[in-house]
Nucleic acid binder design. Structure first.
Length: 759
DNA sequence: GTATTATCTAAGTCT
DNA sequence: TAGATAATAC
């Protein structure tokens, strides 16, 4: 038997061996948190706790799968597969399917993603004749979502003076009505959104004490990972579930709480000890992941925050390289300098590409790096962004499947009723919606009885609607006796979706065809896997497939190819991961910290924690890069370095001299062609007379024309006089005395000087 | 009712 | 810039 206890340090071991009662494991970054969790589960199993009485809640499905794997290695597969392990959302969706009837939902309820939710909100705003520019779907959704995460029902919302005042103050007084209508429509459609999966479980436990008791008895041991990122709704669930046996172990790090925007309460972890009396606390403080310099630099950042559990994270690894600060003039140059650095470090240390990760604050920052990497033949892969299941064509096909599973799903019906085009236009769809809402009848029921609608629709339209209805009906029948794969191929052939896309061979359509084929593949794989497990057709239905798929995250869908590629992802999705070399890019004020966070201290602290998370992903080497200009809305905007750059204690950084950014990687042969294209990039922007120096209207002169005695302008140093030039272009160096910045030596090729006056 | 073109406006992180 | 929506022509 695997002697797992010997692989733990003292505190880790104490945490693992503490089986009963509430406990809190405060796990600093890189302190072996996953190891503790897995070994603790193994330890429970070894102490005769039945696998199916353990509930382990993780943050992503991927984390759950990995943990299952690791537990299986210690205790065997049969045991591990019976553990209730998964995300809050997937575990409780599973339970809700069993208990749905008690809440008046069908057990085959569909799950709306953010886009479905927003389009429902859009429809309601329109039906209520409200101004869509004021009631923006995102803002309304955020409001509704946070209400749900705090267990505020529409009724309570409408009675809450505070909430109504807040809405009045933000000029959106009708939100409570939208919320109510939204909840009504979801219910009528047999639909839950992400927040409902947690909210409805709370309702279930509140209203059906026997059900609560049933699950209290099932889940005798509860473990929660990433506890710092749970919201009130999640907190209430685990509080209720654990209140009988009180065997609840939560693991987390307050310094890594980064999801308050979706309702996470850092207070959950800060107050845990008060909340669960007689709770034991274990602090894991030794970081095994990173070098001392990285840990120290990260600590110097997080110290600026006020709300913290005291702990002393330290590393006994080598001291390591200092944090490398990279400064670029443009976002393109940032991509270039970072790829230079990757090439450099890779060569000198014999690393592989998958030892490198680029972490950014916002998804759209990936673009520049994609371009640069493509240009320079650096293999990469991107996590996140538009996930596979959010692509239009994939959603279209999925909408068919959703309707087949749950005919009440109005949003999905509207999506496919005229896709592919079958002559059912906007007016008809609007009429159907009105009819459905006014009479409390699902659209599908209207379609079934279309001949009874009299003159609402003209004969031609009725015929088209009946045609649509027949297609779906037939598919519904077909789905009864066929597995998911057979069904999806049938759907696609019946509707001629692929056929139509192929008939018009635009590059976009080719891509769409590929994606649909990929979807078919995924379904086929799903069925194949099930075939190995069981003969039971009911396990291979499209419904089962949809259940698995609707809660996948972008992290889960990316296959873990063994390919040697640089990873690109947001800092949020990098949580829990580690890389030898990490580049935190775009560390600029108003981007990171994000502009809405700059003035809100709470928000700013969260951004700082995010920066902390980013730095602590690295094992060996961290670079922090920023640019002085960046494309935004199709224009170049000048930007300034983030306050976070200065907040890193300088003894742990490699602070570059003001002007040496240009020397990085200058030996690289691709450098020159790159910079010439970069210059073009800046030149093509509109140029106004120089009033103030900004990246937007700054156009450098041809460096070869710069001569001694000239007055020149530099984007950062301002105006100065060229006093000397050494060497031949492109190696030539100019010495310039700037009025405000003093004497600087600049490599002319890179310096971007504008000639103001020729002596 | 549908296809094409013109105009607008937005990007913060995710289950 | 690019995707979404509105306006226009067919």
């Amino acid at each position: 038997m695997h002697n797992y206890l010997s692989e733990l340090n003292k505190v880790q071991r104490q945490a693992v061996e503490n089986i009963n009662g509430p406990s809190l494991v405060v796990a600093g970054a890189g302190s072996g948190k996953t190891r503790v969790l897995t070994y603790k589960i193994a330890h429970l199993l070894n102490n005769d706790v039945p696998a199916n009485s353990i509930l382990a809640l993780t943050f992503t499905n991927k984390a759950a799968a990995e943990m299952k794997e690791r537990v299986a290695k210690i205790t065997g597969y049969d045991n591990s597969k019976r553990i209730w392990m998964g995300t809050f959302h997937s575990i409780f969706a599973r339970i809700l399917r069993v208990e749905a009837d008690k809440l008046g939902y069908p057990s085959n309820f569909t799950i709306y993603d953010a886009e479905d939710t927003k389009s429902t909100i859009r429809a309601i705003v329109k039906d209520f004749n409200l101004d869509k520019d004021i009631y923006k779907p995102n803002a309304v959704y955020g409001r509704i979502s946070s209400a749900k995460n705090n267990l505020i029902t529409p009724k309570y919302y409408a009675e809450s003076k505070d909430l109504l005042d807040q809405d009045r103050y933000s000029k959106k007084p009708e939100i409570h009505r939208i919320y109510k209508e939204y909840a009504k429509r979801c219910y009528a459609s047999g639909v839950m959104d992400f927040d409902d999966l947690l909210l409805k479980i709370n309702v279930l436990f509140r209203d059906f004490k026997d059900v609560l008791e049933k699950y209290q008895n099932i889940f005798k041991y509860i473990l929660v990972d990433e506890y710092q990122d749970t919201n009130y709704s999640q907190y209430r669930i685990i509080k209720e579930l654990s209140s009988k046996h009180k065997n609840i172990c939560v693991v987390g790090d307050d310094a890594q709480s980064i999801y308050s925007f979706r309702g996470a309460l850092i207070e959950n972890i800060l107050n845990y000890q008060k909340d669960f009396p007689s709770c034991k606390v274990f602090k894991l403080e030794q970081n095994y992941r990173s070098t001392q310099n990285i840990v120290n630099a990260a600590n110097s950042i997080i110290e600026k925050n006020k709300d913290r559990i005291k702990k002393n994270v330290f590393s006994e690894n080598e001291e390591g390289d200092k944090v490398n600060i990279i400064k670029a003039m443009s976002d393109n140059e940032e991509g270039f300098l970072v790829s230079n650095s990757i090439a450099d470090i890779k060569r000198t240390n014999n690393y592989k590409y998958n030892d490198f990760a680029i972490l950014y604050r916002t998804n759209n920052q990936s673009r520049v790096f994609e371009e640069t990497f493509r240009k320079r033949n650096i293999p990469y892969r991107i996590f996140g962004g538009l996930s596979f299941y959010q692509r239009k064509e994939v959603k279209d096909v999925l909408a068919y499947l959703k309707v087949i599973v749950n005919s009440k799903d109005a949003e999905s019906i509207k999506r496919i009723i005229n896709y592919p085009a079958r002559g059912i236009g906007k007016t008809t769809v609007d009429k159907l919606s009105k009819l459905s809402l006014n009479n409390d009848i699902p659209i599908w029921e209207i379609l079934k009885r279309i001949e009874q609608t009299g003159t609402v629709f003209n004969a031609g339209t009725r015929k088209k609607l009946a045609g649509f209805k027949n297609v779906i009906s037939e598919l519904m029948d077909f789905s009864q006796n066929n597995d998911a794969y057979t069904l999806i191929t049938k759907v696609i052939s019946e509707t001629e979706i692929l056929k139509r896309l192929k008939s018009d061979n635009t590059p976009e359509n080719i891509n769409r065809v590929e994606n649909i084929n990929e979807l078919i593949n995924a379904v086929s794989e799903f069925v194949e896997n099930k075939n190995e497990e069981t003969e039971d057709l009911s396990e291979k239905t499209i419904q089962k497939y949809m259940e698995e798929v609707s809660l996948l995250t972008s992290m889960d869908t990316e296959s873990d190819e063994e390919n040697d590629k640089v990873t690109l992802m947001t800092i949020h999705s990098s949580k829990g991961l580690e890389y030898k070399n990490v580049y935190v890019v775009g560390v600029e004020q108003n981007l990171f910290p994000n502009n809405q966070a700059t003035f809100d201290p709470k928000n700013l602290e969260e951004e700082r924690r995010l920066f902390y998370v980013a730095l602590t992903r690295a094992e060996k080497h961290v670079s922090v890069s920023y640019s002085l200009s960046r494309f935004k809305y199709g224009k170049i905007e000048s930007t300034t370095p983030s306050q976070f750059v200065n907040e890193i204690d300088p003894q742990f950084t490699n602070n570059p001299l003001e002007d040496n950014f240009s020397s990085v990687g200058s030996s690289d042969s691709t450098g020159e062609s790159y910079f010439s294209s970069s210059n073009k990039f800046i030149k093509r922007k509109t140029l106004k007379p120089l009033q103030k120096i900004s990246a937007e209207n700054f156009e450098p002169s041809n460096p070869e024309q710069v001569e001694v005695g000239m007055s020149v302008l530099h984007l950062r140093f301002g105006e100065g006089e060229v006093v000397a030039i050494e060497g031949e272009y492109p190696q030539s160096k100019a010495t310039v005395i700037f009025d405000n910045a003093g004497k600087k030596q600049l490599l002319l090729k890179f310096a971007k000087l504008k000639i103001v006056e020729k002596d």
